[in-house]
Nucleic acid binder design. Structure first.
Length: 654
RNA sequence: GGGCCCGUAGCCCAGCCAGGACAGGGCACCGGCCUCCGGAGCCGGGGGUCCCGGGUUCAAAUCCCGGCGGGCCCGCCA
């Protein structure tokens, strides 16, 4: 049983009336209903001028017929006005308050209205390579993905969240080599060094990678075929990497760096390191060597243990963890390649098996549903390397099909950086041409722009990135000192819990409150910002409402003066609170969490403003006092619902 | 070279997809408010060529075309 939502029903009534009178389609009608704060503009309004011409009707005639149609569908409106071509509607605040009061009495909470078209949805997000700790780029991915999942679930869809463990491929092989050189057992190593395993592995990966690159450059420098100019370039490059190696080595714990450098030199004497990496990669992908299999699985699992720890702080959990290697080992990938090789679109590109994607560009269906840039030349997608190993895009095609098959999903949403747009388009086009049209057209690349550090780009390969754990820690410390200052009487463990909630709120809010298409430049001040445009501000306002209610106690629900809602400040606050489920539903439908975040900010502003000038507990008149308590409850429930959906932890005190 | 994305006050950002009524917030800045339900707050103030130029329209920050600036992508990496 879903809770009814008076405000959404009101919007729906207006939209339906518009559909019936003007004859536009429903989706469009919803967009035409304007919500306004400004006095004199109506609580809701419809611009009429755009219809009067096409319908050949006078504004006042249209206004009258809309008015009576709308009134036949809802009784929540008290007045309609025609002003300069706008149909302005005013909400009957007493009736709205009563309706919300009834909802809360019956269900005890607010929630977004359920969709009329529930679907099965997969949301794949985060999916960080298990070769280094999560950084702030992942924080954006995680926050968006987890929030989307929460919103869609609340909207009535069946949502399945998945994490793709990218354990096949060169990066993982490089890390495995490093771990092998250090004698294996990454988890034990982390324990001995008292360090998060993902962090330790991050160092091992960076150092190993640098050693390989330096080695390669050294070979180029010694190559007699190289010109003097080229040699100078290589030497400069090698010096840069060497400097980085020194920096990372100093930061790395224990004797890790020394041991690695030492073991790497020994390896060089007997074997070409690059060949060792390729062998690891190939024997893992083809499952030739159980020793390598357990080395890589153990290593990846150690990283994932660290990921889980961080993610659980952020309140993020996954329904499924999918190993990329399983897709290869169970034959899903090779089966797909086999199908592709029989396809009429198969071709050879640069001597490798590939699929020619250009025919898909002619399909109108494809152009419309997969957004293909008009003049984009899509290169053929290579499916298999000439050494027989597969590429990530090929495996991702198999994974896409896997996600549909495992869940019976209607749509698969993949939260992946915008920099991967082209390969993501290629994957969908290739699936389409192989006959998986439904899957191709219902796979959504939910793209977001990068998180930059001031002046530089994060690069895990170069060991340059802002770690999520570090940002969490810093924000936590700032929050803890604020809590100590503001609530000295809380017990210490309580203060710590609250400080963590604030840190999580600050980070998650920041990550979703900017349009995903806009790059974020990140400085630490911004992460630790607890001021008015922030998650903690919302948490603070929620705590404040709870503070009032703790002291005010339960209202007598049968003795509430709903007419007290007419005071303009209370009225504005009531309406804003009532809109919350509606905005949550819209945020889910449009897949734009920021819509809800912005609305909550406005609600919090209104509440704080009201709070300042209209005393609740000290109100003498009993029925008015009951109304004010009710209003506070409504606000608390609206904020609480919103915070839950955004994954920002609630705290009754802070 | 080609493609995609972004360009709104000193700074950060809503609004653009679904064109309409004075372009909204926040930070910073200036001035007020704590014997008073939680001051992480509230009230007030200054600050704008909505990147530029055309076009469509009764109406353009919003749609179209052309520029400019920045980011990203164009690999048998992921």
């Amino acid at each position: 049983m879903t809770t009814p939502d008076p405000y959404s029903e009101l919007i729906e009534s207006v939209a339906e009336a518009l559909v019936e009178i003007v004859g536009i389609d429903e989706r469009k009608a919803f967009h035409q209903v304007r919500l306004s704060d400004r006095p004199g503009y109506g609580d809701l309004s419809l611009p009429l001028l755009r219809y009067t011409r096409t319908l050949n009707i006078k504004p006042d005639q249209l206004f009258e017929s809309l008015k009576s149609k709308i009134n036949s569908k809802t009784n929540l409106l008290s007045d309609h006005q025609l002003v300069r071509g706008y149909h302005n509607m005013y909400i009957d605040e007493s009736k709205l308050a009563l309706a919300l009061s009834n909802t809360l009495r019956e269900y005890g909470r607010l929630e977004p209205p359920k969709t009329r078209t529930p679907m099965v949805l997969v949301v794949e997000h985060t999916s960080a390579n298990p070769i280094h700790p999560l950084h702030m780029g992942h924080a954006r991915n995680t926050s968006l993905g987890d929030t989307l999942a929460r919103l869609l679930k609340a909207r009535g869809h069946r949502v399945n969240t998945r994490f793709y463990i990218d354990d096949v491929g060169r990066q993982m092989a490089v890390l495995a080599l490093g771990v092998k050189l250090l004698g294996g057992d990454p988890l034990g190593m982390a324990k001995r060094l008292d360090m998060k395993p993902d962090k330790l592995l991050g160092y091992i990966y960076s150092i190993t990678h640098l050693l390989l690159d330096i080695h390669k450059l050294t070979q180029s420098i010694n190559d007699p075929a190289a010109s003097e100019e080229e040699k100078l370039y290589y030497i400069r490059e090698r010096d840069k990497l060497a400097a980085r190696l020194v920096a990372v080595s100093q930061e790395a714990p224990g004797e890790i760096a020394d041991k690695l450098i030492d073991a790497f030199s020994k390896l060089k004497e007997t074997k070409e390191p690059e060949r060792e990496v390729s062998e690891i990669m190939r024997s893992y992908e083809n499952r030739l060597d159980e020793g390598i299999v357990s080395l890589i699985r153990e290593t990846a699992n150690a990283s994932l243990k660290g990921f889980r720890e961080t993610l659980s702080k952020l309140g993020v959990e996954f329904d499924n963890w999918d190993w990329e290697s399983d897709l290869v080992w169970t034959g899903l990938v090779s089966k797909l390649i086999e199908e592709a090789s029989k396809s009429p679109y198969v071709t050879v590109h640069k001597d490798a098996l590939a699929i020619d994607l250009s025919p898909a560009m002619d399909e109108q269906e494809v152009r419309e549903k997969i957004k293909i840039p008009k003049a984009l030349e899509i290169p053929p997608l290579i499916l298999v390397r000439s050494d027989g190993t597969t590429l990530y895009t090929t495996r991702d095609m198999a994974y896409t099909l896997y996600k549909f098959r495992q869940t019976g999903a209607n749509k698969v949403v993949n939260v992946i950086g915008a920099d991967q747009r082209l390969p993501q388009i290629q994957i969908r086009l290739a699936l389409y041409l192989l006959g998986y049209k439904r899957e191709a057209l219902n796979t959504i690349h939910y793209a977001y722009e990068i998180v930059r550090l001031p002046g530089m780009r994060m690069s895990s390969r170069k060991g340059v990135f802002l770690g999520l754990d570090e940002v969490l820690d810093q924000t936590y410390n700032v929050a803890l000192s604020r809590v100590e200052e503001k609530s000295p009487d809380l017990p210490l463990d309580e203060k710590e819990k609250v400080a963590l909630k604030i840190a999580v709120g600050a980070i998650r809010y920041t990550m979703i409150a900017t349009d995903p298409m806009r790059p974020i430049e990140y400085n630490v001040d911004r992460a630790t910002n607890l001021d008015s445009n922030s998650g903690p501000y919302l948490q603070y306002t929620y705590a404040r409402a709870n503070g009032i209610l703790r002291k005010a106690g339960e209202p007598d629900w049968d003795r509430i003066d709903y007419r007290a809602a007419s005071d303009p400040t209370r009225r504005g606050l009531l309406i804003a609170a009532a809109q919350t489920p509606y905005y949550a539903a819209k945020a889910a439908d449009d897949m734009e969490p920021v819509l809800l975040a912005n609305h909550l900010l406005k609600l919090a502003d209104r509440f704080n403003s009201w709070y300042q000038k209209d005393q609740v507990i000290r109100e003498k008149e009993e029925e008015t006092r009951n109304f004010k308590i009710l209003l506070t409850i409504i606000v608390r429930e609206a904020l609480g619902m919103g915070l839950d959906l955004l994954g920002i932890p609630k705290t009754p005190r802070m």
